[in-house]
Simulated scan of single mutants.
Amino acid sequence: MSTNFSDDEETIIQEPRLWRDERWTAQVIKNEDDEGWAVAMTLKGESEPALVGPWTMGRDKKNPKPLDAAAFHTLVKTASEVLRRHEQQLHAKLHKHVSVDTAEGRVKVMLDIVPDDDNPYATLTAQNDMGEQIAQARVQASYRLSETSAAAWIEGGFGKP
């Protein structure tokens, strides 16, 4: 499927099986799994669709229902929500934190993973109640942050975990 377009191409298309605005392309395609139709939503500059879902058959029960403005706007909203949820999940996976109560007060320990293909790593950072950084250490990307591991790092004087 060739739905992506170059960055300088901003052609608005409104055809029965292809709609494009400044950011999104909706393309009705033959569903390879059965006799029905599907619609693929691709964000400008991306090679893969953000959303692929079933599409309604037309009145003749052979061809797809044509795209229209209302359907396109609904598809844009749905595809945008899929991307937003994906970004939230990725952020939650790469950025974690716990809080530990110590004699000096509450310490927030954060783990920020850098998913580099060649050399992934993570940064462990401690902040006091005022949000001031009190320690930082580089750790392996596989480091497991928990209240127990954070407390051990703090009790060890913020040395190499």
Rank of each mutant, 00 (worst) to 15 (best):
V76I: 13
K108A: 12
L111T: 12
L145H: 04
N4Y: 14
T125D: 07
E22S: 10
G45R: 07
K96I: 12
V139P: 14
A152L: 14
A69P: 10
D8M: 05
A122W: 03
P120K: 10
I134K: 01
T78K: 13
G36E: 02
I134W: 05
V109Y: 00
A150D: 04
H86S: 13
R144G: 05
R23E: 14
L83K: 15
G156M: 08
S2Q: 06
L145G: 06
D117L: 11
R59C: 03
S142G: 02
K108N: 11
R20Q: 14
L18W: 09
I12T: 04
K65P: 01
N119I: 12
V28L: 04
L67D: 04
A50S: 06
A137R: 13
K62S: 09
E9W: 04
K160W: 10
K30E: 15
K108Q: 14
P16D: 15
T56I: 06
K62L: 12
S142L: 00
A92P: 02
K77F: 06
E15H: 10
A150E: 10
P49Q: 10
L51S: 08
F158W: 09
L124F: 03
M57Q: 13
G156K: 07
P16E: 12
D68I: 00
E48M: 11
L43G: 00
A70N: 03
L111M: 11
A92Q: 14
I154G: 09
H91G: 02
A26G: 12
E22R: 07
R106I: 00
N128D: 02
Q14G: 00
W153M: 07
I154E: 11
E15F: 01
L145W: 09
H91C: 02
R85D: 11
E15G: 08
R84G: 08
Q133L: 01
E81C: 01
G53N: 09
P64M: 15
N31R: 15
F5S: 01
E132Y: 03
T74Y: 10
W37D: 09
Q27S: 12
T148E: 11
V76Q: 15
T74R: 15
H95L: 05
I154F: 11
I13C: 08
N128I: 03
T3V: 03
T78W: 08
D112K: 14
G36P: 00
D129L: 05
V76F: 10
A141I: 02
A69E: 15
K93P: 06
A40I: 10
E132T: 06
D112H: 13
L111P: 07
R84P: 14
R106S: 08
P64S: 14
R20D: 11
V100W: 07
D60H: 03
G105K: 13
E104C: 09
N128L: 06
L145F: 04
K96H: 15
W37R: 04
T11I: 00
Q88Y: 12
I12P: 13
I134R: 01
L90A: 14
F158S: 02
H86R: 15
S6T: 07
A40G: 12
P16T: 10
Q136A: 13
D118G: 05
P66T: 03
Q140I: 07
E9G: 00
L111S: 09
S149E: 11
L90K: 15
A50Y: 07
N31H: 15
R144F: 07
K108G: 06
D34C: 12
S80R: 09
